[in-house]
Design a protein around this nucleic acid. Structure first.
Lengths: 140, 140
DNA sequence: AATTACACTCTCCTTTTGGTGTGTATCGAA
DNA sequence: TTCGATACACACCAAAAGGAGAGTGTAATT
């Protein structure tokens, strides 16, 4: 009514959504998947497992690099729930847990492969762009 | 030393990093790029612009869907800085700003294409995995 | 004269992300 | 007997992400 000149949110009408996904529920789901999967830690873990096959908890962490135990646990659990990784617990002491990619996980890893290649191929260009941008704006 | 039985962070030795990137600086940069690019909003905007060519600010928002002006501005700026989108301001009133993908942006979009396809192809399987997982755990 | 539209910016505010430190159970080694 | 290793869980906290709403400036429209 009269409480503002504009709305802060831009609404999606059915017009264009129909082009991408005929079903809004499907669209929402795909979006949710993208939201979960397009994650730094997920991509890094995916890479580590793709490259090394089966790894134990701490080894995954080592291969990934700067990841805390908390995020490692959390991300691995999410990936397990989504069916990307297989978690096998050997009931021995000290505990031994193996992580490996499922078929789906390998598929996603393959899909992300192109993104990794793109990043490696264009890092110099991106740096240049950033430099030019900051000069155009804040710089002298 | 003696202030704890374990460290919360798992350290990356040079052993495996050398396999992926010979240079740790390059690795960090690629990782930074992935961190920026593997973002929900970035992917969605990339998609919108890829599909529709040139769009104005509000139109990008409409095509993307549930995005706030704040995130739209922020993400577009980041993408502009990284050289993914081209931003052309027409100094007229009311303001008119056109956004389109650069060559690099189209390349990244193409790289992400596989991920979209994967998500669309496996959403049912993911839902099943999630259901099975929650039953295995919290469920009855 | 008031409204609308555009492309934002700015200020709150809440939610999520992520790090750190600690605890746990058990076995073998020192 | 105490320590260290493994694979976590849990609690606490800081920082960042992200949303809501209001404001801005101008010019054509109503």
């Amino acid at each position: 009514m009269s409480q503002g000149t504009n709305s802060p949110k831009i609404y999606a009408w059915s017009e264009n959504r129909a082009a991408k996904a005929l079903d809004p529920a499907l669209d929402g789901l795909v979006r949710d998947i993208i939201g979960k999967v397009a994650d730094k830690w997920t991509m890094l873990i995916l890479e580590a497992l793709e490259e090394h096959g089966t790894l134990r908890f701490t080894d995954v962490g080592r291969k990934v690099g700067d990841i805390s135990q908390k995020m490692l646990t959390k991300t691995l659990r999410q990936m397990e729930a989504d069916g990307l990784v297989l978690r096998i617990v050997h009931p021995v002491i000290p505990p031994h847990v193996d992580y490996s990619l499922t078929e789906m996980g390998r598929g996603l890893s393959a899909a992300f492969c192109g993104v990794w290649e793109w990043a490696e191929a264009h890092h110099a260009q991106i740096e240049d762009s950033r430099k030019a941008f900051s000069e155009r704006n804040g710089g002298a």
